[in-house]
């Protein structure tokens, strides 16, 4: 028996919004430690890794490890039927071929349930090597989304250059060149507005705007985003999900042809 309950459906809606542009379907691996999802996008350029800890749920029970393959378009249809403040409960029997998603209004006067067919997905888990990153940047998630959106107008690629002074995002194309520099913030009143750079050595990497923009669909989950970079390895874009876990996107760099 698997049962997981969250106080607000809005969190699940935001999580789905953060992955459904990259993935058509995905396997949710459930165990007593929580729910994990790891999947590559269709073009095998990026990898999405979602971790939801069992202690972040209002109620969590998982008697036996369970892998639930879900069509994310179908899940999105179901979540559209929930009000943001509804409680949401996911339930499945051991070895079941369906999952039940139930919404309850705060006053318990409206209860709806949706049974969704599960899929058998060929899932390949990838081993992600430990990396000592050269640069780790923490910045407001909205600012990162804004930069990715703005620079995508000028080029398919963005160059991220990180030094101890700051981080520079550049794009160059037919229109010309765009550069956005962010300096590390001095003192800020609010932690969520800070730009913090931890640098071991400077790094310059090129990434496809299309994927960065897809990752920023996770912006509503978190006030801050963390970018971890190292020469010739995938960028890690991480959004914390408060009290519940995190979503990490890995993006392979563009390399010299």
């Amino acid at each position: 028996m698997f049962e997981a309950r969250l106080g607000q459906a809005t969190i699940l809606k935001k999580i789905l919004d953060a992955i459904k542009d990259l993935l058509n379907e995905a396997t949710f691996d459930c165990s007593d430690s929580g729910i994990q999802l790891q999947a590559m996008d269709n073009s095998h350029v990026s990898l999405v890794s979602l971790t939801l800890r069992s202690d972040g749920f209002d109620k969590f029970r998982c008697d036996r490890n369970l892998s639930m393959g879900m069509n994310l378009g179908s899940m999105a249809k179901i979540l559209k039927c929930a009000n943001n403040e509804d409680n949401v409960t996911m339930k499945a029997q051991d070895n079941a071929d369906t999952v039940t998603i139930m919404f309850e209004s705060a006053n318990q006067e409206k209860v709806s349930d949706y049974e969704m067919k599960l899929m058998n997905l060929d899932q390949e888990h990838l081993g992600i090597p430990e990396t000592d990153f050269s640069c780790v940047v923490r910045m407001p998630a909205m600012e990162f989304a804004r930069i990715c959106r703005d620079l995508a107008q000028f080029s398919e690629s963005v160059v991220i250059c990180c030094t101890k002074e700051g981080v520079k995002f550049s794009a160059s194309g037919d229109v010309g060149t765009a550069n956005i520099k962010l300096a590390q913030t001095g003192s800020v009143d609010k932690e969520e507005e800070a730009v913090i750079i931890e640098m071991q050595e400077p790094v310059t990497l090129t990434f496809a705007c299309r994927y960065l923009n897809a990752f920023t669909k996770a912006t509503p989950l978190s006030t801050q985003v963390q970018l971890s970079m190292c020469a010739d390895v995938p960028l890690v874009v991480e959004y914390a999900i408060k009290d519940l876990g995190h979503i990490r996107y890995y993006l392979a760099p563009k390399i010299e042809d």
């Binding site: 350029v45 990838l126 081993g127 890995y250 042809d257």
Partner: peptide, 14 residues
């Protein structure tokens, strides 16, 4: 010119 690398160039299948 740059070309897009694949994620499997970096991460191996378990």
């Amino acid at each position: 010119k740059t070309k897009q690398a694949g994620i499997l160039n970096f991460f191996s299948k378990k």
